[in-house]
Amino acid sequence: MKIEPFEIAVSDDAIDDLQWRLRHTRWASFTPHEPWRQGMDETWLRACVSDWADRFDWRAAQRALNRLPQFVAEANGQRVHFVYRRGVGPRPYPLVITHGWPGSFLEFRALAERLADPASFGGDPNDAFDVVIPSLPGFAFSPAPAAPGVSAWQVADLWAALMRGLGYERFGAQGGDLGAAVSVALAARHAKHVDGIHLNFLPSSYEPAVGPNDAPINAEEQAFLHAKAEWAALEGAYAHMHTTKPQTLAAALNDSPAGLAAWIAEKFRAWSDCGGDLERRFTKDELLTNLSLYWFTQCIGTSVQMYWENRLQPLRFGVGERVAPPVGFAHFPREISHPPRSWIERVFTVEQWTDMPRGGHFAALEEPALLAADIQRFFRRWR
């Protein structure tokens, strides 16, 4: 597999165009209402747009991103962008980490450093990983698939080919959000190459069949399914749009950076352990760098389209179907769903379960030290 170094290079014209659009935002009118009750808060958004236009330094952010070891390669005919941080230790273990939406490879900068070079953080160099962080097809610098049909299952095939192309016959996988779906698909479809998977989220499309010889759904599982349905009804409008009409949405968000900021930043507030204060968990530059990656690569349409594909190819498992590689699960208290261990164990063997003291959906950004320690502990058995 041919691997080429990659460097981000956004043109001055693209930066000027973004700043012009931000400064000429046509603001919507609303009947007065409680802040954040109906979604994005206009006061916060106006300040964000002003900051993005007049203070944020994309060139500085780009230089920081380009300090990450980035590459592109072709796997199964698909060009893939990825960060590849080699481990500092006697025998680094290979690990592929997959991001989700509305995230990007940016989420894992701090986590990757802790995993690749634990000694620099007071840890054991024997816990070092070779960390591979690909951008999902249609996200950031990985181009969209040339044909429809690329769900988490097909991305898992791409990642298996990428890891083998990098020289790893066996490896581990980690992910949250869409990345959790890819990790589950890797374990299910590529068990001969995947030792185990570590998750900090259970994909919403995960569905185990309950046969006549299986234990009936218990009270805890029933409560989880009820809470999941209730959350989807009250908070899941974004996902319903993504899974049914992604291109209608893309037409609006790809043309308006203020609209893009509203759609994405509201989720960082709602899904994180921030107590309603976004900047308690994320710096403004982290948020704006992530938004800029979506804007400059014009990937909002192709990124949300993966929800469409996952709806058509969900993570359904038949009666009696089991997946061989074991699972480690990190349960963060402010995650958007809270599956009971028994629900996951209907298909997987859960060998490690950790109830975290704090953190939410964006665990790698919110609590990189906690997440890194849990990943290290889970994968020690294969060293």
Rank of each mutant, 00 (worst) to 15 (best):
W295H: 00
Y84S: 11
A215C: 08
F282H: 02
L288T: 03
S135P: 07
S29V: 15
Q78T: 11
L22N: 05
E367P: 02
G122L: 12
L65Y: 03
W44A: 15
G77I: 07
N290K: 03
W27C: 03
V150M: 11
G138K: 01
A112T: 02
S104R: 05
F82C: 07
P216F: 10
R59M: 15
S50A: 13
A330S: 15
V131P: 05
N213D: 14
D273S: 14
E367D: 12
L293I: 03
H24G: 11
E207I: 12
V96E: 01
Y93F: 15
E366T: 06
L186H: 06
L115N: 00
N126H: 02
F362S: 04
K245P: 08
L371H: 04
I336P: 01
G276E: 07
F71E: 07
P368H: 01
A227I: 01
R55F: 13
A232F: 10
F71N: 05
G276M: 09
I344W: 02
A53V: 12
M241V: 15
R380E: 09
G138C: 01
R23S: 13
L136W: 05
L312C: 13
E74L: 08
G259R: 03
R380M: 00
G103M: 06
A180L: 12
K192Q: 14
G122S: 11
H99W: 03
G179E: 03
N290T: 04
S29M: 14
Y206S: 07
T248R: 00
Y307P: 03
I336N: 05
F332K: 05
